[in-house]
C-alpha cells in the first residue's frame, strides 16, 4: 500500500531531555496505527512534530511526497492532517452544534466558499451537503445528537472527548491523529467509544494514528503498533508481535500494568 506519511530520523531535545531520538516511521494509507509507551516516552512529541506544534531539530516529515516539516499547524491541517487532544480543546461558550458549525465554517473559508460576497449555502468540500446538514450528520455518527444544543462547557468527560474528535472530521482529514482518545473514560465505556469513533472515522476514509495506554484496546483496534521508549521507537510491528516483544514487555507493557495497578490502588483508596 502507498505510504501517506513518512517521518524520517526525527530528533528533538528540550534542554537535557531527549524527546525524540532518531524516530522514523512510514505510515501506509488507510492503516490504523497504535502508539504505545509510558508517559514521557515521546508519543505526544511525535504527534506534536507531525502536526507542527513543535519543530524537530533535525529530520523531515513528508505527506504524500510533500515536505511538511516546516509548516505551521494550520497549514498542516489544511493539507489534510488533523488531530484530537488529550485534554479536549472545545469552544466552551458555544453549543455542540455551534462548535461543529465553526469548524465547518473554517473548512468552507479555506476553500474560498461562504465569504462576504457569496450567496446561498455552499456545499462543504468533501461532503455533498451544506454545513448545517453535515454538522447534523457528523454529530449523529458520533452519537452526539442528544447533546446538540448543550453548551460545550457542561458536557460530561466522555462526550467532550467525542466532540473533540468529531470536530476534526469537519475537514475530512486523510490522516487523523488521536491523542489518548479514551483517557478519562471508564474501562467499560472504552470499547464502545472506540468502536463508534473507528466506525465514524473509517466511514470518511481516514488513516488513523492513536495513542493508547490500554493494551487490550490497542490489540483490538490497531493493525500496527509503534512502541516508544525514551524518545525512540523500540518496536514497529503488528500488535500480536509488538506486544509480545521482550523489550516492549519490559519497558512499555510492564510500565502500563504498573500504572493501571496504581490507578486502581488510587481508586480503591
Amino acid at each position: 500500500m502507498a505510504v501517506v506519511l513518512d517521518a524520517r530520523d526525527l530528533n528533538k531535545r528540550f534542554g537535557a531531555v531527549t524527546a525524540a531520538n532518531g524516530v522514523s516511521a512510514a505510515i501506509e494509507q488507510d492503516s490504523v496505527v497504535g502508539l504505545i509507551g509510558t508517559n514521557g516516552a515521546g508519543k505526544t512529541t511525535f504527534i506534536n512534530m507531525i502536526t507542527g506544534y513543535i519543530k524537530p531539530d533535525t529530520g523531515s516529515i513528508h505527506f504524500r511526497g510533500r515536505d511538511i516539516t516546516a509548516l505551521a499547524p494550520r497549514e498542516i491541517t489544511r493539507v489534510g492532517i488533523c488531530r484530537s487532544f488529550q485534554i479536549p480543546q472545545l469552544y466552551a461558550s458555544l453549543s455542540v452544534f455551534e462548535n461543529m458549525m465553526v469548524s465547518l465554517g473554517v473548512v468552507l473559508r479555506n476553500a474560498g466558499l461562504g465569504g462576504f460576497f457569496s450567496r446561498g449555502r455552499p456545499n462543504v468540500p468533501g461532503y455533498d451537503a451544506p454545513a448545517e446538514e453535515v454538522a447534523e450528520r457528523i454529530l449523529e455518527r458520533f452519537g452526539l445528537g442528544d447533546y446538540r444544543d448543550k453548551n460545550a462547557q457542561v458536557l460530561p468527560g466522555g462526550v467532550r472527548k467525542l466532540l473533540d474528535i468529531a470536530l476534526t472530521m469537519a475537514a475530512k482529514p486523510s490522516i487523523l491523529l488521536l491523542d489518548e482518545p479514551t483517557s478519562g473514560v471508564s474501562a467499560e465505556e472504552k470499547f464502545g467509544m472506540m468502536e463508534m469513533v473507528m466506525a465514524a472515522v473509517k466511514a470518511e476514509g481516514a488513516t488513523v494514528l492513536f495513542v493508547e495506554h490500554d493494551m487490550e484496546v490497542v490489540s483490538r483496534f490497531a493493525e500496527r503498533v509503534l512502541a516508544f521508549y525514551d524518545g525512540r521507537i523500540i518496536a514497529d510491528a503488528a500488535p500480536e508481535i509488538a506486544l509480545t516483544d521482550p523489550e516492549v514487555k519490559r519497558y512499555v507493557v510492564g510500565g502500563e500494568l504498573h500504572r493501571m495497578d496504581e490507578q486502581k490502588g488510587a481508586a480503591n483508596a
Binding site: 497549514e75 472545545l90 458555544l94
Partner: peptide, 13 residues
C-alpha cells in the same frame, strides 16, 4: 475567544 489552539488546528489563522 474560547480556544485559539483549536482554531489553529482547525486550519484557520
Amino acid at each position: 475567544k474560547d480556544n485559539e489552539i483549536r482554531v489553529e488546528y482547525m486550519g484557520a489563522s
